[in-house]
Design a protein around this nucleic acid. Structure first.
Lengths: 354, 354
DNA sequence: CCAGCAATCGGCAATTTTGCCAATTTTTGG
DNA sequence: CCAAAAATTGGCAAAATTGCCGATTGCTGG
């Protein structure tokens, strides 16, 4: 264009600034990975984490940069046991990130994943939930549909929680006359995997098209690292879903999430999900094959794509039927003991229908 | 994690596959840039285009890859005049992209930008529009508010078009009893710049918070290359906007788009926008400084951030007031001569109010 | 049509990134 | 607690990427 356009163009080389920019970006990416971890990470682990974020750097290169960062005091080396980020490194990251004021959803996902404490074996600790503030009468009206979504396997397991008026969750108080319908957030899955040493990369949320109860393709998608609002909230408010079709003849549009796991972890993940399903926390819709696209969605080589049910699905059907619901994904943490199963829902709901 | 986890980990090197993957990605990115252009592009232009997509490769490296691609017949060299993509290259791209069935919005933006033919100097040709199908009576009801949005400068210029029942645009026919309210899509701006040799990178659409009529920050954002649906449609349907505030006391939430242009083009762009504003097509809200963040949004070095008004703003206020509107962004092309100005709107609308 | 200018091209060297390997450390499993 | 196994590290060399520069080509204005 330059010659064709009227614009002067500077001599075309990757100028000092752009060169530096790339180097600096590598450093920041490494620091970012370290910040997320409590324990020291080795270069191999960092390279792995970077790859799962689509940032391709070899383990050797990471080591080279770590050396540099160690010398500058931005990271602390524990010899062969790994590196952690130092106060100085954290400060450096903060400076570089003051610009990023809009919080991307991917950041909130990461944060929540680390905050929750649920222990699969002991069945204790907190899980991440989505909260929907709803009129109990409206809920009763749609009770059958809501339960159907759960029973057909389009909800995250079979558990949920009801909060009474006056209770607070994630800074939001339930107003009088309303109740909160809390569903398990599918992030819970990430967290359980993480506690078993499996890093999960959450890619996007979307509207999954079902045919005869089977996932066919994603009709719409929104990537987590490009949005500040939860995709599911968008689809629900935009009335773009079709749960009624899904629960009647298996043809519909439901919320789902696409993630990637390391291929070595495929079997372990499937096994862990079975464990979770056993206690009413299952939500895996599909698992791909190593490095193979899943429903036409390509994955980074060495990874496996998985499709997880959206936690908000069961309550979203209310909006579809015509009742207004205020839903918020990733709203807060709830102790596992607070959860009830769908089977108990009708009975529990009775209480609020004066 | 590997050691701490129960997972076996293969020897950690960037295996052949991952190496190849990166190389292949470079090649594909170059081919993708070439596909978009009708004319031959030189290595410098390609490097520039890649940079504007956040893909940092030096001009020399691009040239190296071009050489390879030329030899393999995927591209055709025109000597010092540049390179184009060959049939074989297009085929290669298709193979690599069969996986990408979900159409990202960024792709549609690119497509539309190239399709429109508007000539700023001659004031002829087609422009890209958004279409909102609406009941003429509803529109009349909100007429004042809609015009206010235009007059306060929150619409793309002062032009729009009304389509009658029976007319078609972008494959959608206007049903009897309804009319289509077409607003200029802000993509028009990209296209005008492109025809003057200025490449524009559209980053994201968002909800812009206004205080005293001035943009303060983006409250929510959705990146174009991570979504299949238009952000503005989302915000409108989700009733997340606040145009009424914006037109009354200047405090509200309106739709806007964030883009990046080369820093050398800053003055030219400002000048071109003035030209456009003169014929009722203005829509620039803010222009940043070279390599400086704009409203806290960082830009690639060597670029300037700009904020452009969303074309859908004027009609979106209907939804906010409570009338249902079916809006579709980037719906199709319309000849410039079809456009009327806001001032004529009340009169034109009369015709449809039987 | 020609001269001057600007941009592109390819070769070569410098720099960055990566692969490979031996030494060392940590973990595992008696 | 010890030995084998597994993983990490740093040095060195190969490969990839980039900077630089002279030669060449295309464009522009007279």
């Amino acid at each position: 264009m330059s010659r064709k356009s009227s614009l002067p163009r500077v001599r075309e080389e990757m100028s000092v600034s752009r060169r530096e920019e790339r180097k600096s970006r590598h450093r920041m990416e490494i620091l970012r990975v370290l910040r997320k971890s409590q324990q020291p990470l080795t270069s191999g682990e960092i390279a792995e984490a970077l790859a799962s974020a689509g940032y391709l750097l070899s383990e050797r290169t990471v080591r080279l940069y770590l050396n540099e960062l160690d010398r500058e005091g931005l990271t602390i080396s524990y010899g062969h046991r790994g590196h952690t980020i130092s106060e100085k490194g954290l400060a450096e990251l903060r400076i570089a990130q003051t610009v990023q004021r809009v919080g991307y959803l991917s950041a909130r996902i990461d944060e929540m994943t680390y905050k929750m404490t649920f222990d699969l074996e002991r069945r204790t600790g907190t899980v991440v939930v989505n909260t929907s503030v709803v009129n109990p009468r409206d809920l009763a009206q749609c009770l059958d549909a809501v339960c159907q979504v759960f029973y057909k396997g389009y909800g995250m397991g079979r558990r949920l929680a009801i909060l009474e008026p006056g209770e607070t969750l994630g800074g939001v108080q339930i107003p009088p006359g309303k109740i909160a319908f809390c569903t398990i957030c599918s992030i819970t899955f990430n967290s359980v995997l993480l506690k078993h040493g499996i890093p999960t990369a959450s890619r996007f949320g979307g509207l999954l098209e079902l045919r005869d109860g089977k996932p066919v393709r994603f009709a719409e998608i929104i990537h987590y690292d490009g949005t500040s609002i939860d995709p599911l909230e968008v689809f629900i408010r935009g009335r773009m879903t079709n749960y009624r079709g899904a629960i009647t003849d298996g043809n519909g549009l439901i919320g789902a999430s696409f993630r990637e796991i390391p291929e070595d972890a495929r079997e372990v993940v499937i096994h862990l999900e079975e464990e979770m399903a056993r206690i009413g926390l299952g939500g895996l819709m599909a698992v791909g094959l190593p490095s193979q696209p899943l429903l036409g969605i390509p994955v980074i080589s060495g990874r496996v794509g998985v499709i997880v049910i959206a936690g908000l699905n069961p309550i979203a059907i209310l909006e579809e039927i015509g009742y207004q619901v205020y839903s918020r994904a990733l709203s807060g943490l709830l102790d596992f003991s607070r959860l009830i199963t769908v089977d108990d829902l009708p009975q529990v709901l009775e209480k609020y229908l004066t």
